[in-house]
Amino acid sequence: MTEQAMVRIEDLHKSFGALEVLKGVDLEVARGEVVVILGPSGSGKSTMLRCVNRLEEPTSGRIFIENDEVTDHKTNINEIRARVGMVFQSFNLFPHLTAKSNVMLALRKVKKISKEEAEQIALEGLARVGLDDKADVYPIMLSGGQQQRVAIARALAMDPHVMLFDEVTSALDPELVREVLDVMKGLAKGGMTMLVVTHEMGFARDVASRAVFMDEGVIQEQGTPEEVFDNPQNERTKDFLGHIR
């Protein structure tokens, strides 16, 4: 198991000034697993996710991706990030580039792939999220759901070994949530390893191989979605699930 772990987080702590957001998180994600992370806002779930590719610098603890230590400053973080895809709540598409160019940029500059090949990959990627007809459109002309799908295509184009989703539907209008979740479901079915921070309980139930409940900077409870949703053991989990139903 340890040898096979895609992501391994050991005793992760993170403080912002005097505020301790993560108080010792341990988590192991196996290849092909879809781990959904739930919890009230301020529980540290996004911070944990952002520590995985070191967008946040952990205060202490160790994180491994496929046996490379992310938290070791001697490792080339850019090389690791290139195989860890990330999708954000606020899309973060590059507004000065078309959908296609958004997908192509890191292929060209990080992977040094030829223009023709990068274009090919970008068009295939956009087709995969159902947006091949929007290849030459600028982000401003796309709906939120379409922008988020381009963002997913952009991350997928790098051929990542694991994908991090940080509340990717929270900024979307309700009617646009589904198109994004559908893309994510397809990914999960295809065997992608995924860490998903979300409030979409239906998605968690359908897709997750494991549900993790976080509160107060630690993992309070984890298990299969059925265990966590239908038969929560932890008082905080019960309380949280009771509130959102």
């Binding site: 967008l55 850019n78 990330m86 954000f88 973060n92």
Partner: peptide
């Protein structure tokens, strides 16, 4: 926005 730098960095730039 800070998200632009984060998105670029998360892609390995």
């Amino acid at each position: 926005s800070k998200g632009q730098l984060e998105a670029a960095r998360s892609l390995g730039m």
